[in-house]
Amino acid sequence: MGRIDSKLAELGIVLPDPAPPVANYVPYVVAGNLVFISGQVSSTPDQLIKGKLGADLSLDDGVEAARACGINLIAQLKAAAGGDLDRVRRVVKLGGFVNCAPDFADHPKVINGASDLMVAVFGEAGRHARAAVGAPSLPMGAAVEIDGVFEIA
């Protein structure tokens, strides 16, 4: 078991199988030493976390939804890295989309659910550039969707 897999176990995180695409795209593209991961929605092995922040979901619900996206990103990253998360050199950038009511303004706090996870798992290499924006709707009614760029060795 590698260093990052050990850290995931220590945090009690079990990675799901990487989700297959739901439309005409690939889950990730490796270009040189960068991995571009398609948007991962707020799903767990048991359910899709659906809803609208500021309407029927609380800020805490949104943070958990973003964390679920982060776990799904790491699952895709593991596949892209040939099963070896120790190849990850840096989390470069996350792009977060929050399904929210028009007056909702805590997008950054929601996406911290994924950002905090990246730092917990990858340490200083988990610190990244980021966007956090609101959207009137997301695929399948998901509460959050996040894509990412990662550097691997």
Rank of each mutant, 00 (worst) to 15 (best):
S58W: 11
L77A: 03
R3F: 11
S42G: 07
D84K: 11
A131W: 05
F122Q: 05
L85M: 10
N24M: 13
S43C: 04
R87L: 15
S6T: 14
I13L: 06
G148E: 10
V144F: 04
F150R: 07
D103T: 13
A68E: 03
V119H: 12
A114D: 12
P20M: 06
R89M: 14
P45C: 07
V98N: 08
G62C: 02
G32M: 07
G141F: 02
R130F: 11
M118R: 08
V98H: 11
V22Q: 13
L85W: 11
P18Y: 01
V41M: 07
D103A: 13
V30D: 01
H107F: 14
A120Q: 13
D116V: 07
P21Y: 10
D5I: 04
D46C: 01
L15C: 06
G134Q: 08
A66L: 11
S137K: 12
N72T: 02
G123Y: 11
N99G: 05
P20C: 02
V63N: 00
A153N: 14
I13R: 07
N24I: 12
N33R: 15
A66C: 13
S137F: 09
F150A: 06
G54T: 12
H107G: 04
D84T: 07
A114S: 15
A79I: 00
C69K: 15
G95N: 14
D56E: 12
R127L: 14
P18V: 01
G12N: 13
A135L: 03
V91R: 02
L48D: 05
A19F: 02
L138C: 02
A153W: 12
S6G: 15
A132T: 08
A31D: 14
S137T: 12
A101N: 12
R3E: 12
L59M: 05
D103S: 14
G141L: 01
D84C: 05
P21A: 08
A66K: 13
H128K: 05
I71S: 01
Y25R: 08
F36G: 06
Y28K: 01
L117D: 01
V121M: 03
G62K: 03
K7I: 09
L53A: 13
F104E: 06
A9Y: 10
D84F: 02
D106W: 14
M140V: 02
P16V: 05
P20L: 10
K50F: 04
D56W: 11
R89T: 13
R89Y: 08
F104R: 10
S137N: 12
V110W: 09
A143H: 08
C100P: 02
L117T: 02
V26N: 09
L77H: 04
D46Y: 13
Y25W: 11
G96K: 04
V41P: 00
G83A: 06
P20K: 14
E124K: 15
S42R: 07
A80F: 00
P21T: 08
I152Y: 08
L94P: 08
A105T: 15
G95P: 00
L15R: 09
G54P: 11
A135F: 02
A131H: 09
A68K: 05
G39V: 07
S6L: 12
G2H: 11
D147W: 09
P21D: 09
L53T: 11
L11T: 00
L57H: 06
G70Q: 15
D56A: 10
N99H: 14
D116K: 15
R90V: 01
P108C: 04
A125Q: 10
M140D: 03
A23H: 15
